[in-house]
Amino acid sequence: MKFSKYLKNNYLIILLFIVIIAIIDLMLISFKTNNQAIVGVTITGVLGFILYLIYDFYRRKKFYDKFINDLDLLDKKYLITEMIEKPNFYEGEILYDALYEIDKSMAEKIKEYSLNIQDFKEYIEMWIHEAKLPLASLNLIVHNHKELSDKKITEQLKRLDDDIEQVLYYVRSENAEKDYLIKETEIAKVISNVAIKNKDILLENNIDFEVEVGNTKVLTDSKWLEFIVNQIVSNSIKYIRNDVEHLIKITTEENNKNVILKIYDNGIGIGKSDIPKVFDKTFTGNNGRKIETSTGMGLYIAKQLCKKLGHKITIDSKENEYTEVSILFNKDDFLNVAK
């Protein structure tokens, strides 16, 4: 709070004071009062007034400076009411009380929304478990009745399952609460589940699926990682290039600090200008526009999940040559020492 601005803000009362002092002085002169008395009255009046201004300025400054400073420091601005003391001037009190009221009402509103979101999330999770039942049933029916058996049906069922999973993991990725469980996971097992899920479509499209991951272990939630890898592999299958023998190759690299899982394909690749945007929500880019089933959500969700799990996901690609997605896992030093 600046004194000059404070004076500017109070110019009316200062002006009024000067006028009144001037009038009093004129009146005293016209009553032929002693000159010394006039000077005395004027100095007393002016001094008193200035002292008052300074006092008033400082008690406001004390409150507002702390207020603004605290507000700057706060990450969550709405917590300001917890930081400031009740001021000792009238307008300050009004502001203080109003802030409390506003905060309270906002907190109530937010609570209402977060309960709604929680309810919605629970409903979606429940719905997804329900939706998986007819899927499981259909898979069994197709398998049991060979006369109905058709790869086309199982492929569509797989697609449906993927889409349902995507909703589930979108809800999980957007949710603030921690509903994953980190434990030591063998990458080969995760890859194997993804491979079996995609077996039919890989075979049908003559895509060679090469895996060289040894018995590398990482710290992650295996179900989440399975979803992430499935998204990436699904993309590789979607964006195959017709003039080559299709290949998806999954490898791992390991050093002292981390493990990198690399998923490479020799598909159509991604244009240079699109690469920085592939993890953005609903981004479909040039490739997406060529394929109807692109929602632009898969990689976005994968990135969000990686963020939560503490992994780093990156993409490297050259148009009409290859795409390689890398997931970087940190090694836990503590765990290694504990072993």
Binding site: D179, L181, D221, S222, K223, W224
Partner: peptide, 22 residues
């Protein structure tokens, strides 16, 4: 993962999720 870990710790021998490949 939680359900799987729980089930295995309660003594289940294996854990498979629906829909599964028959």
């Amino acid at each position: 993962e939680t359900d799987e870990v729980l089930s295995l710790s309660y003594g289940a021998n294996d854990y498979i999720t629906k829909p599964y490949n028959p």
